[in-house]
Each structure stands twice: as C-alpha cells, then as structure tokens.
C-alpha cells in the first residue's frame, strides 16, 4: 500500500519538475523586457509627475501663463517665484520670470490644480541630473518656455500681421536649467 503511494508521489513529483521546466522554457521564449537605459528610455505614463513646466499655447506660440501668481500662493512650500509684465498689444499680463526651487518642491500638484488658465503641467522628465545644486534651486522655467516658443516660431513662419514672439527675457540670470542626455520629449 505505502509502496504504491511512494511510487505515486515520486511520479507526481517528477511531473511537477517537468511543469517547472515548461514554465521557464515558456518565459525564455518570450521577448526580453529590459530597457537598455542610456540608449533607450521608457515613455512616462500620462500621470507621471516630473517637475512642473509652463505650457505653450499651440495656436499663438506664447506661454499661456498670465502671471496671476495663484500658483505661487497655492504652493505649500513657497518654491515658485514669478513675475509678469504687460507687453504692448496684449490685453493681459504675460509671464516674464518663472523660477522653481525644485529642492523644496514636493510635487503636490497644487499649482497645476489651481492654475485658471491651464498654463502649468507636470513634465515627463525623470532623468534630471546636475553637478551643482543651483540647477535645481533656481530652475528657470521661463527660459525653457522661451526656448520652446522660439522653436515654435521657427516651425511656424510668422504670418505678416502677427507680432514676433517676445525677444530677450528681462530676467534670465542663469543658463537654461538641466539639459539631461536623452531626455524623453514628453
């Protein structure tokens, strides 16, 4: 009786080993899921929270921000400093300086939520790195949006009546913030 049980158990045990081998064989035949990081990067999901950035209006090629300072007031750690000027021909003020202290930012998203003109969003940059602290203490978001605006106007040759996009920024003390390699374009 117990001999039969022993034989049965041995047989079942061997079968379970074969099942294990089948599982690893199946896994081995599936595609590799490693991302070769410096050469390839993952696309961040839609709800990923990188540092905040200003949004360019895709129609006018200007920042949407009206420098209402609601974001600076909403920020619990007070890490946003911004300023705006009223440029000639415009009805509203527009942003002229936007600095983020990323070292104190907790990515809570209050600024994004409160913005009345949807002018701030989370960027998808996750591989931000720098050799000096200043890059993150004074992240010049205005310089970034300026660069974007310039790229926009280069891509859209100016129609005759439209005014050119704002030229040299009045407050632009630091160089453009971190320029990581292979930052995803998103």
């Amino acid at each position: 009786m117990s001999l039969i049980t022993a034989i049965r158990e041995t047989f079942l045990g061997f079968k379970s080993l074969l099942v294990g081998l089948r599982i690893t064989a199946r896994e081995a035949s599936r595609p590799i899921i490693t991302v070769q990081y410096p050469r390839e990067t993952l696309k961040m999901p839609a709800r990923f929270r990188g540092h905040i950035k200003l949004v360019l209006d895709p129609e006018t090629g200007k920042p949407r921000c009206t420098a209402c300072t609601l974001c600076a007031k909403a920020c619990p750690s007070g890490c946003i400093v911004l300023d705006g000027v009223k440029r000639e021909g415009d009805k509203k003020k527009s942003v002229s300086k936007y600095e983020l202290d990323f070292t104190t930012c907790s990515l809570c998203g209050s600024c994004v939520e409160i913005c009345p003109s949807d002018a701030i969003e989370f960027s998808k940059e996750y591989n931000v790195v720098s050799l000096n602290r200043d890059t993150f203490e004074n992240m010049d978001l205005y310089a970034k949006i300026e660069a974007e605006a310039r790229a926009w106007s280069a891509a859209h040759p100016a129609p005759p009546a439209a005014s050119p996009p704002p030229a040299a920024a009045p407050a632009n003390p630091t160089a453009p913030a971190s320029q990581p390699l292979n930052a995803p374009a998103g």
């Binding site: 081995a28 590799i32 490693t34 070769q36």
Partner: peptide, 10 residues
C-alpha cells in the same frame, strides 16, 4: 545568457 533569457533580460 540562459539565466537572462529565462528571467527575460538580455
């Protein structure tokens, strides 16, 4: 390499 394949890495 075999270990990698089974664990789905290169």
């Amino acid at each position: 390499k075999g270990a990698g394949r089974i664990q789905r890495r290169p």
